[in-house]
Structures are given as structure tokens and as C-alpha cells.
Design a protein around this nucleic acid. Structure first.
Lengths: 240, 240
DNA sequence: GATAAGCCCTCACGTCGCGTGAGGTGCAAG
DNA sequence: CTTGCACCTCACGCGACGTGAGGGCTTATC
């Protein structure tokens, strides 16, 4: 009769004894026991173990596997869809990460960036943008940046920084987003955005999506201060 | 003077206070303290935090980030390369996972597979193969499977199962891999492999690679018993 | 100057899927 | 009968925090 103890089953499946114990802890697999407490895995247990392993290969957490195996009428389609969209998202993120890494490696091999600091300045400039702008749009942005030259870029950066500082000052003073005091700041903000987008509405739209979607996480990229962004979004709407 | 306490900094960066604490625990960020023990983040701390976040976005673990930031001459190229190959591998695995999920969803939507059990039989048949065989080879295998028909498939499966059981019996009896008793079993094994590969050496090669590379993990897929496989590899070599 | 609200602090345990010992018992072979 | 291996049960470790619990600090209001 084909029934095995933990060590043998582990050897045959390529799992470890600890893993079998763990599955039992989680209620996934419940072999019989000898009088001395040794686990005895019968054929049915092996079949079930095989199912567990297969479902794990599909990326399901153990808890979900337990639910599936314990209910034979489990609705598979929704979980598969869910799993698939999660996978798609992960795939997209990983792909972007790969592109970033390749870009940085390229910079290093060209000698453009050598220290951690150099690297970080590159990251800030590129990370978030790649996500929301199409290649076309990125090319256009790059062209405009080139046209400005390093000095122009520095000035634009400074303009943004000054404006953000002033907005934060108002925020700290408790100024309301729809206050008249915000009017000139809103105007300057819009002007800077126009300069950035070059009047291209597609780019403006991408930028808007970026802030809406990304929220706090985006700001952490360039350290743009999430509070200021949220505040300005209200102000922009109030003075639309 | 721009220096903030934990809550404010957290709000601005989109991180949580706990995260700031944790970075301090790990030695990544060490703000000053007030007499009462409250953390005070100066501008330099914010810059450093920004660097930490950026490097985290590249997928580095906190320990590596600490090393990079503490040594300005840190050799970046190797770690970037390493990171990139890790990413590539992850990408490949995730892509395969996605394909599997899509295949299964297709089956469900066609009504071919409805229960968890149906799903699992499909998984076993396909999972591992997709990894090591080229699409061409998979098509050829599929064609041969179709030619056999369901009955032929069942017989082939049974032949394999019988052979494996016999091999395991020898293994349990302590028969040596190079023993003459193994000769007929080796011959049958080779015959079944020829039937499977259809004499196509490319497919045979893929199959070999699969077993070599995958080892125990592969077996867990179809529950092929890793011990029997290892034993047969020795036997096949001994009787080559 | 007292009090309440809100921010800050330090433990300390939970997450997920096991790996890795430590320390003790069971079992088949010599 | 003893040796040695297989088995058992705790119990801590990982990575990057989340989530309270329980208690001090600070600031606005009365």
C-alpha cells in the first residue's frame, strides 16, 4: 500500500519536510498519524499535495488554495481574472524597472554617471515620467529640454522650487484653496505647466493623469511634497 | 529653517511615520532629537531620504542602499548588472505565469474546464513543458498527441506509470543503477522517450535540459518522483 | 494656569512561506 | 542492546513595514 512518511514524501516531491509540516499547520494537508505521532501520507494526501503545488505555481497564496480545494464548486473565473490583472500590473512595473536599470547602466558605461549621486539625479529626472508619457511625448519633452539648455533647465527648476515654497507658505498660514490670495500663484502654476507642456494638450493630460493616479507615491519620486500638490489641485479647480 | 518632525515629513513624502522609524532602526537615516526625544529632520536628512526612496524604486534592499549611500565610491556597475539579470529572470517567469493563466482562462471560457480538478489536470500537462520546449516543438508534440487520440494518450500514460512503478520497486530493493537487472527497464525507458520525441533530437535535447535544469522542482509539477528520475539518469548513463 | 486634543515616543506582535537549528523520541539493523 | 537515522515539537529568523497599546509632549482653548 502506497503510504509514506514525511521524509520519503519530501524526497519524492522535492519539497522539504518543513514545508509539509507547514501545509499541515495551515490546514491544507492533514495526514494520519501513527501512535507515536509520525505522519502517514496516504495516496489521497499525495494527490492533494500535488494539487497544492500546482496551484502555488499559478501564484495563489496558500489561503486561497485552501479555499479552492475545500470547495469543489469554487468560482474559478473571477480569481483567475484577478490573478491575471495582478500579474499584468506586476509585469508592467517590472518592465519599467528594467528599462530604468538599462538606462542607468548605459549612462555608467558611457562615463556620464559614476557615483551614486550622479545616478540619483538621473533617476529623479526620468523615473516617473516614463510611466505616464508616451515615447513620442517623452521625445518632445526632451527636445524642449535640449532647446532650453542646461541654464534654462536650471532656471525652470528654480522657478518651480520658488513657487512651491510660496504655496507651502500659504498652506502653512492656513490660506484657503479658493482664497483670492491664491490667484497669482495659480496663474504662475498654470504658466509653468504651459511652458512644460509647450501647449501640447496630450502632454498636459498625461501630466494630470500622473498626479491623479500616482498621488503621494509620485511625489516621493521627485520629493514634490504631496500636501502642496493636493492643495494646488484644489486651488486650480477653485480658480478654473 | 526647514526642519520637520516625523509626522510632517511623512505627510510631505507620502511615507508613514513607521517607515521613518524603520529606516532609522536600519541605520539609514539618523535625525537629531529634541530633549524630549522627538525626531527632527533637517534638510540634509530630507535629501538623504529622497535618495533612499529613489534607490528603493530601483528594487534594491535597504541593506544595499545603506552600503551605497555610506560609500560614495561604491561600485555601481556590478550591482546594477546583478539587479538587471535578477529582473530579467523574474520577468521571464512572470511572463510564463501569465501565459499559463491566459490558457486556463481560455479553457474555462470555452467550458472545457469548470472545476478546480479540471484545471489541475490541464496545469500538469502544460506547465513545465512551456518552459523548455520551443513553440515549434510544442506544436509537434501536440500533433503527435492528437494523432494518438485520447485512448493512445491514456495508454502512453499508463506505460509510463507502470515503468516508473517498476523502477521504484528496484530502487526500493536497493538495486544498483548499473545492475543488469536495470537493462530491460532502461530499454523500455528509451523506447518511451523515442515514442515521445518521435525521434526528433531537438525535442530529446530539450527534454534532457529540462530534467537537468529543473531537477526536483520539475518533478513536483507532474509529481514524477525526483528519486526515480535521478536513479534513471544514472542507469541510463551506465547502460549507454 | 489648567485641561483637552493631538502629536510624539517606545515596545512588541503580525504579516508570508517557509529555513534552520535545538532538544527530545521512535524505529530498524547490527 | 545499542547505534544511528528518521521523526517529532517548539521557536526564532527573514524583509519591510502595519497596527495597535500604553504613555509622555505640546499646543490651543478656556
Amino acid at each position: 500500500m502506497p503510504s509514506l512518511k514525511a521524509g520519503k514524501l519530501a524526497a519524492r516531491t522535492g519539497l522539504t519536510v518543513r514545508t509539509l509540516h507547514y501545509y499541515e499547520e495551515r490546514g491544507l494537508l492533514t495526514p494520519e498519524r501513527t501512535a507515536a505521532g509520525h505522519r502517514i501520507y496516504a495516496t489521497a494526501d499525495m494527490v492533494r499535495l500535488q494539487q497544492i503545488v500546482s496551484l502555488k505555481q499559478l501564484g495563489f497564496p496558500l489561503e486561497a488554495i485552501a479555499a479552492m480545494l475545500d470547495d469543489p464548486d469554487y468560482a474559478l473565473e473571477p480569481v483567475l481574472h484577478q490573478q491575471l490583472t495582478a500579474i499584468d500590473q506586476q509585469l508592467a512595473e517590472t518592465t519599467r524597472l528594467k528599462q530604468r536599470l538599462e538606462g542607468l547602466l548605459g549612462q555608467i558605461q558611457q562615463g556620464t554617471a559614476l557615483s551614486v549621486d550622479d545616478l540619483l539625479s538621473t533617476i529623479q529626472a526620468t523615473t516617473m515620467y516614463e510611466k505616464y508619457y508616451t515615447p513620442d511625448q517623452l521625445a518632445e519633452l526632451q527636445a524642449r529640454a535640449d532647446a532650453l539648455g542646461p541654464d534654462g533647465m536650471a532656471k525652470a527648476q528654480q522657478d518651480w522650487q520658488d513657487l512651491i515654497n510660496e504655496v507651502r507658505a500659504e498652506l502653512d498660514q492656513g490660506t484657503a484653496a479658493d482664497s483670492d490670495r491664491m490667484k497669482p500663484l495659480v496663474a504662475r502654476w498654470n504658466a509653468l505647466i504651459r511652458a512644460f507642456t509647450g501647449g501640447n494638450p496630450a502632454i498636459a493630460q498625461s501630466m494630470k493623469t500622473m498626479y491623479e493616479q500616482e498621488g503621494p507615491a509620485a511625489a516621493s519620486q521627485g520629493m514634490v511634497d504631496t500636501e502642496v500638490i493636493a492643495f494646488m489641485q484644489k486651488a486650480l479647480q477653485a480658480h478654473a
